[in-house]
Design a protein around this nucleic acid. Structure first.
Lengths: 329, 329
DNA sequence: TGAATTTATGGAACCGGTTCCCGTCGAGCG
DNA sequence: CGCTCGACGGGAACCGGTTCCATAAATTCA
């Protein structure tokens, strides 16, 4: 049997209310304090935080729904969120959906049942059903990585990141450029990032971009690269993520070709592994820690009923590696 | 204001207890059921699970304490744990300690206050203080990745994994072997794995192993490699983890040398990136999913008061890459 | 048709805390 | 010395559920 506040009160010969007052810093005489302290130490008593939140109408839980845990980006953002929330005395409740979109809906409902004070949804796509659920639960929801009207969102500056990359690649003299992208249902990566790349290329005079669609995982990227190279020979391949770039690299070296000798290659993400591999990958590093901290701060504001901007944008850094070479025109 | 069971009862014109019975499948007439169902749908009512667990003395929460989220091994194990626990209607409460050991203690206490039904501790080292805390909270704790007497543990078969690797490297003809290991306070990796490697090498006739100690991160590994190569020139370098191997690889290529041309290299972990880089890394792949599932199953048994073996061992697979070459003797 | 069951429902207590309200006691004051 | 006031501590209600118990209604059975 667990010790409760009642037990402590009995053992110390005082009322429950007095013990509660002692724990919460109310008016208790030194003598009583000493008695209670002694009993608590002896029994290893820990207050039941469920009972506390029941009365307090506040759980100090923030739920985070993530598509997966084993991705560099997600886990970095999660770490930062967790760190920041802990500092502010919140507990992070992480739920991974293993990329099942319907599980995102389930998780929203299940978190609302846990009475979390707020929910951070790291999204890969937001459907009508999402919006509906978000509106039906009466808990503030912050969306990270996707932009949704009338919802608080934090996104990467995908457009400008793409633009920068497009510009860079075309400045290096490439004109036969392939893009290994992802599904357009992912607005951020599938649409914004791509649009940025196209505009960046165009600005420097490259108007054609052959696009191929890959999953987010390395093996599918490798497969798509293989298919692509059978019908098209670009001088540069821009990949929607670093992981996809690694997949492409795998296929390229399997075919006995080299980067950047035969193909220039670039990605997005800035995984720390990218600088180790040879050649080091030219990529865009998004500031995931910043995103995480921003997310934590914002959701707390939301739970307190404070106003927050509907859209916040997290920055990026261009990382020049060795994987893109200059070609003579 | 949140809707409660009382509200539902009033709106439906029945007693709280009837609504509760309806929700939990008790005896309720069809007519009453219909009334209640209607009200619940209209109000989007979700029962407060805190209030439920308060009475039930069971939260269906399992806490998981992990040193970090942004490591391949940890996140894979976490995913598997989460997946398996969800299947069994438990909610996973993940806490990351950002490698602060004292935060592990804190987390144990804070989880006990949340009244989780059980705790999985993914450990990098277990001190006296840990044991003390584990004993003081009255919640079952399962330790993953370290072996502790009188505690339920799940570990990798580090000794035999090391043995296999030692054997392999010496069979390839290497005799000047360096080991980039980690602190001995990490029993599993720092001691067991190393002992296995030494015994594996010895069995094939190599009795000397120069050992260097690195942190778990890539940059420190790169630095230590640099230092090492200033005073010792091995033909093979065995690294305690794949990440350390990547660090070594970084230094090696910075020095203008190649793997496996100048140095053979091996790691432990089996990250999926290992097969992409060139040359692909010879490594040991531990079965992290298996560990995760086993952990979830075991902690549930523990919470139910069932007996579990004190020590369970999770398997591994040897992955032969291109990073270790044969040398003529 | 009346007695014995079974089924459906309401009322109340309980889980473990917090908090409001009120009574008591001792100290300070005139 | 009596009165007032503030500090202290106890009792009880409340948070939102579950569950036991009693009672009323419906059904079965003799």
């Amino acid at each position: 049997m667990n010790t409760t506040i009642k037990d402590i009160a009995q053992l110390a010969g005082v009322a429950k209310s007095t013990v509660s007052r002692y724990l919460n810093g109310g008016n208790v005489s030194e003598k009583t304090k000493a008695k209670i302290r002694k009993v608590i130490e002896e029994t290893n008593y820990e207050p039941n935080s469920f009972a506390q939140s029941l009365k307090a109408k506040k759980t100090n839980f923030i739920g985070v729904i993530a598509p997966t845990l084993d991705s560099y980006v997600t886990s970095t953002v999660l770490m930062a969120i967790d760190e920041e929330l802990r500092k502010r005395d919140y507990t992070t409740l992480i739920i991974s959906t293993s990329k099942h979109v319907d599980r995102e809906i389930e998780s929203l409902i299940s978190l609302s049942r846990q009475k979390v004070d707020g929910i951070i949804l790291i999204a890969t796509g937001v459907t009508e059903k999402h919006i509906e659920t978000i509106n039906s639960i009466q808990i503030p929801v912050l969306i990270v990585a996707q932009e949704v009207v009338h919802c608080s969102c934090i996104i990467n500056d995908d457009y400008h990141a793409g633009f920068k990359m497009g510009q860079y690649v075309s400045e290096k003299g490439h004109s036969a450029v392939a893009y290994l992208g992802v599904t357009e249902s992912d607005i951020a990566v599938g649409q914004r990032r791509k649009q940025g790349i196209m505009d960046g290329l165009k600005e420097a005079g490259v108007s054609d971009l052959k696009t191929y669609i890959s999953q987010f995982d390395l093996h599918d990227a490798a497969r798509i690269t293989q298919e692509m190279l059978e019908s098209f020979t670009p001088t540069a391949i821009i990949c929607a993520t670093d992981t996809i770039a690694f997949g492409a690299m795998k296929t390229i070296s399997k075919l006995g070709k080299t980067v950047p000798g035969d193909f220039s290659l670039a990605g997005f993400g800035g995984y720390n592994i990218s600088e180790v591999i040879h050649p080091s990958l030219t990529t865009i590093r998004f500031n995931n820690e910043e995103t995480g901290v921003m997310a934590a701060e914002t959701i707390i504001k939301l739970t307190n009923g404070e106003d927050v901007p509907e859209l916040q944008v997290s920055g990026f850094v261009f990382v020049e590696g060795e994987s893109v070479k200059s070609v003579k025109s």
